[in-house]
């Protein structure tokens, strides 16, 4: 009880002492967590025995970032090619053909969306929905989508088609300049699933074409690619987490499989029941939660 009436000098001393202990404590947080309940505060299903690893260096991820760069460039190359086919169909007035090419072309973009988002204004130019930007600035895929499905015409879309192809090519040029590091991969994977969670699973992304499931699948594929690339690092750091994420991808892909169509596409969003949407959303959250723990490979 006496301690409560000590002088300020003692107070300062004890405060310093405590701070010192605190620092010592901070030096080994991973070890302490491993003793108590690794990962479990976040997901019940993880039984990871987290180990202490030194903070990761850039060198640890050189392979991973190079692999991802190759992947991203491959997807963007395909994106430019497929967008060109799409915009040509639009300009030629081939309504049905344009509608067929629309969603598959977008998938290449949706797989690497975090890269595009890292490149300033390109994402809104290519992918803004009505209301995301001022109406006078609205262009890109969704502008043309509205014409194709709602107005049922390609009239007046020539200029937008040209701009879209230009923007796609600009993306291809700029991607060379993106500084891809492990942090971008880790946050990018989660962002891809957040994209699904906030607009695709609710059917808000493709409000005229209802091709939301194409985007959904592509976002998940993009996230899974990142997971595959980081898997060796993750397996070293937290094998249980690595396994858990793999299982959750599998579970989500299993939920998505019944919605695939024979032509390699996906059913339109309006074919999903309320229960379908909820199950997909819950599977997505079940995956995104452990996926958000991938940052553990970056150290403390």
């Amino acid at each position: 009880m006496k301690a409560r009436y000590t002088l300020p000098a003692v107070l300062l001393l004890s405060s310093v002492l405590f701070a010192a202990c605190g620092n010592k404590e901070e030096a080994q947080p991973a070890a302490n967590n491993a003793q108590t309940s690794p990962s479990t505060a976040t997901t019940a299903d993880s039984t990871a025995a987290g180990t202490t690893a030194p903070a990761a260096s850039t060198a640890d991820f050189k392979d991973a970032t190079e692999q991802y760069r190759t992947y991203a460039i491959g997807e963007i190359d395909a994106f430019v090619t497929e967008t060109e086919k799409f915009t040509e169909a639009v300009k030629a007035g081939k309504l049905e053909e344009a509608k067929k090419l629309y969603a598959p072309a977008r998938m290449h973009y949706e797989r690497i969306e975090p890269i595009a988002e890292a490149l300033g204004n390109l994402d809104p130019d290519i992918d803004a929905r009505q209301g995301d930007v001022d109406d006078k600035d609205w262009r890109g895929f969704h502008k043309i989508e509205q014409a194709l499905w709602e107005q049922k015409t390609t009239d007046g879309m020539n200029e937008y088609a040209d701009r879209l192809l230009q923007d796609a090519k600009l993306l291809r040029a700029k991607v060379e300049t993106v500084d891809i590091d492990a942090g971008l991969l880790v946050t990018g994977a989660v962002e891809l699933l957040n994209e699904v969670s906030s607009s695709k699973v609710t059917g808000e992304e493709e409000r005229y074409s209802h091709t939301d499931l194409y985007d959904f699948v592509a976002n998940v594929e993009g996230a899974e690619k990142i997971y595959e690339i980081l898997k060796p690092n993750l397996a070293k750091k937290d094998p249980a987490l690595e396994k858990q994420i793999g299982e959750r991808f599998e579970a989500l892909n299993k939920e998505l499989a019944p919605f695939a169509t024979k032509d390699g596409g996906y059913v339109t969003y309006d074919k999903l029941s309320k229960q379908d949407v909820r199950t997909l959303s819950q599977n997505l959250d079940a995956l995104a939660e452990p996926l958000s723990q991938m940052g553990t490979i970056l150290g403390v």
Binding site: P38, T40, T42, V186, S292, V300
Partner: peptide, 13 residues
């Protein structure tokens, strides 16, 4: 809640 609450690379527990 028990777990990592200080790691800048992770969502807090």
């Amino acid at each position: 809640l028990d777990g990592q609450n200080e790691n800048l690379n992770l969502p807090p527990a």
